[in-house]
Design a binder for these strands. Sequence first.
DNA 1: CATGGGTGTCATAAA
DNA 2: ATTTTATGACACCCA
Length: 886
Amino acid sequence: MLYLKKYLTEGLIQMAILLSLCGVRVDMGLEPYLAPPWHDMILGPTSLLTQTQFHNLRNRMEDGQALHPKSVDLDGFFTTRRLLGLVRSLNRLQVPHSEVETWLVQRDTDPLPLGCTDLSLERAAAGGEREPVESRAVVLHEEEEEEEEDHEEGTHHVPIHHSGAVEEEEEEEEEKEDVDDDDDDEGHLRRTEGRGIPGGLYSHANREPTQNEADQTSSSIQECLRLLEETFPLTEEQLHDVEGRREDLAHQSPGREPLLSQINHHGNPLLEMELDWQDLLAIMEPENTEVDMTQHSRATGTLQGVGCEDLNQNYNNHGRRVTEADQEVLLMDAPWQHSLLRSPALLALTPSAELDDHSSAVNTRGTLTSSNVNPSQGLPNHTHLLAKDPSEDFGMGLNTEDGTTTFNMNLLTQGLDDTIGGGPCPSSESRLSFDATFHSRDLPLSRLSPSSEGNGMTEDLLTSPSSVFLVDEEENIANEDGLLSPLSDFLEDAAILDDMRLLDLALEDGFSPEMATRLEEEGFLDSRMAEQETVGKDEDSNSVTPATEDQGQSTIHLKDEEEEEGSDSGLSLDFSHSPASQSASEASSYSSSSSSSCASAVESPFSEEEDEEGEEDSVGSEMEMEVTIKQEDLEEEEMGAVGGGYPEDFKNPFLPTFGDHKLYNGFSLENIGHDHTYNQPLSSDSSPSLGKMPTKHTKSSSRHDNAKPYHRSSSRRITESRMWSRDERRARVGKLPFSNELIVNLPVEEFNDLLANYQLSEEQLILVRDIRRRGKNKIAAQNCRKRRLDVLLELKDNVSGLRRYRSRLLREKQEAMRNLQEMKHQLSTLYQDVFSTLRDNEGMPLDSMEHLLQFESNGSVTIASRQQGAALPRTKPSKKQRDKKK
DNA sequence: CATGGGTGTCATAAA
DNA sequence: ATTTTATGACACCCA
């Protein structure tokens, strides 16, 4: 309940902030909490806040409850979101991208866990939001000024389809991921439910959401048109022109999926898609690279570093998944990929149904001769590409740790060149092109990978990429981004990043061989293995993401921290079993801030660039703050690890005396396992026990284990200096036969056994229990403080992100107002022109100020008096019509 | 000496 | 009923 209160309070605060920020979405940071089934399952709570909650969630989830407990508290946020919709409606028709994302995720998630989603997902998410809006919005614009162009539409469309295809493919390939995906799907569903999104979306899987969105957009557009017409009645010609265009568009893509039909109103979808894609690449990639660069630069220790790490880790995981053979396959596929570059959108974006056609089209182009081209293979290959791209990148990054940045950069740049310039580089082309394609996806991939991981994260990821993408587009392309990239993107990104981090951390912290062995012995291996896999995937994906050296370093630090801290957070009940889970949980809590920062970082580069308001500085500062904090933690932990050997006295006494060495050994082992880095000194002692230990550990033990490592690592300094020294002193005074660590960290049962094995006086028992209580409370306090700090940082990030979003909205609003004014001006001009040709019954010119043109349903036009509103006998309807037609 | 941050501990509530 | 966890509050230490 406490957390709920906390969350609620925080949520209220955010709400207030959001409201103050012109009704931006509130759910941003909270969403991750809402329904992250999969995420929670594996990683643990996104935010540092709730281990307990997390457990609760798990329990409830296990119980089959779809909704996250917090969702109830978050109702207010949903309301806020609706308000957001209103804000969005100001400039553009809005399609709740959350729905789109959900839809996409569902399609994607089933098949694709991590990397597969790629840009397609990203763009799908972004495009999903935009497409419907823009497609119709375009009509409006055409009607009005034809200002906006369809780049985005095509791109978005493509991604959506692509995502679907990819998903299907991946489903075949990866079963495990499917499970995760399923979880993700559930999470999305839950989320959507929580958000109050019509259940039809997920219930009907793919298309309904888009249709709903399209409907919404269309309705909103129609409303806008109506308003415009009311204010400035349109001529029949204009109306016809608009409708005719719509119809034409609808007819042009007859065979397409409904979604496409809705989305794509423009001629050849493929061509458009390509064009759009390229345009997007042209627009996006440079910025992406910049973003990456910025991220990398910042990555040094900052939150970004953390987030990047997560991403990188995700990529790494993918890479791990993808075997070298797969990489080879990728290389083989390179030409095909290259073709992708030429028609990037096709492969990635084309819907599964159309994929074959597209692949054939690609083949026809002749760029591809390889067997990969086969339609049947096309999909799988594509999936490979998706899955493998990251792996490759990852592999590259891994192989050349230092070169990761450059490598990625090169890839990006080359990819851009290839995609844009179309100039292929024969040998390296495949990779480059692939990289380029991948790179174009990089942002999305990073996000996607998490998305694949599951739960709300996917949405966040999707949104985040979209947001980033949108941001770029926005800058480059005036309004197109529009409101679509909402605050939620930022927040979601943060949340996603957090999740990512958690996964990454878990993975990294993860599993040393010792850990694995232990787990196996203990029987936790299965769950952990699954986690590892997921984590590994995450890592791969992360690795795939362009990780600069700085990032790598930061990641390392983070890992260390995570390990150390992971032990702390490892306290988290359920997941504590597996070190990874622990690390993950901790990472989640710990990383939540960092992740948020990362998210902000990811966002920040774009958004910051977009948003001038100097928010960047603030963000950067925040990032740095986080980084520093993390570094400090690491240092502390390391310090503790190095210096913090527990007094051997305690251990030694215990070993001989204690009947079950298991406990001691296991304990030590566990500690070691968790804190690989800093515990080593201890590990040496405990190491021998490794083999012995495992049989007995239960969850509780694991918990304790988790707790211990952290406790040691973080607390060691402190411990030596104070706490332990204090309790140790007490223990010594009380002549306790075993170490404080055992007292504190042993599971209850083992602890009781330990006490039973020794004949302790009443005072000693009290002392032991006090020591245990204090030790646990100390750890709890540490975790609590960390959590609090993370939450604070996250909130800061959210604030900065919301500010950026607000500034963007204001800019968009201004632009929309300008456009509206321009339209009004044009309309008034048109009116003047029309009335200049009109004459009343007496042959006198009509005053446009006094009369209105009324468009009848039958197509006729009448002149009405503005004042009376009564339709005057139209003197020259035919003429008017002619004029209009002209 | 005052101040802020970090830490441990206690008390309490909740799970 | 017991144990564990989370958290606010307090005190202490240190820079």
